[in-house]
Amino acid sequence: MTISGTAGAPWSCAPAVLRPVPWEMPSTASRASRDRRTVKAVDDDARLLERLRAGDEAAFVALVAAHHDAMLRLASNFVSSRAVAEEVVQDTWLGVLRGIDRFEGRSTLRTWLLAILVNRARTTGVREARSIAVGDAAPAVDRARFDAAGAWSSPPEHWVEDAEERLGAAALASQINAALEQMPPRQRAVVTLRDIDGLDSDEVCAVLSLSQANQRVLLHRGRSQLRRALETALGGS
């Protein structure tokens, strides 16, 4: 699912597939997002970084490849075209090369990269991620589905175990991507960084300059929207 650099959402760059092997989810989502970037991936980063500092070109390209998707998607939230987003990513890496000694390992490499990228994207951005008044938003579930006492009148149907079977991996991925595309940029950025890119809440707050409270609100809205999209696709509402 590639995108054109001109019309349409510049954001969507993930192909319409799901990973074939399901990740195990620990019981809370915050631990889950940390687990998503495996210990191996973080180790790889450390080794590649060492080689990069020694001037290894292949290590550089491998690092770029490992983080490219996360960086491009984040950049796309700040600028108006994919071409500009790609430039922001390249500029970020150039900045990284020039200041490679400055990474002190206080955060993960990914968090550090994304923080630099956001700085660049903000100065480049024609379309600044607009401050959506955190106060106004649709309810997580349509009010009409509750009775006057606040209890479900139109409760959720059961689809949890057979979502993939019923829709297929490609259609599911497509639904998720479509829902992400429709989100306001900051909301999309929060959900993407947390639930796709494996940053924890502190890291997302640092990268996007958000308070914990705002991050939670945006995450709640984003996840609620994604759930609604899946529910609609599975014929539940």
């Binding site: 993930a14 889950a32 997002s33 490849a65 979502a163 998720i176 991507n177 996840r223």
Partner: peptide, 28 residues
């Protein structure tokens, strides 16, 4: 459903790092 939504979202495959991208960054 919320947990499953989060799980499925986490399974999106990243976009391909194409040969062209590889070339561009090698150049850089």
């Amino acid at each position: 459903q919320m947990r499953e939504t989060i799980r499925l979202t986490g399974r999106l495959v990243p976009g391909d790092f194409t040969p062209q991208m590889r070339e561009e960054f090698t150049e850089l």
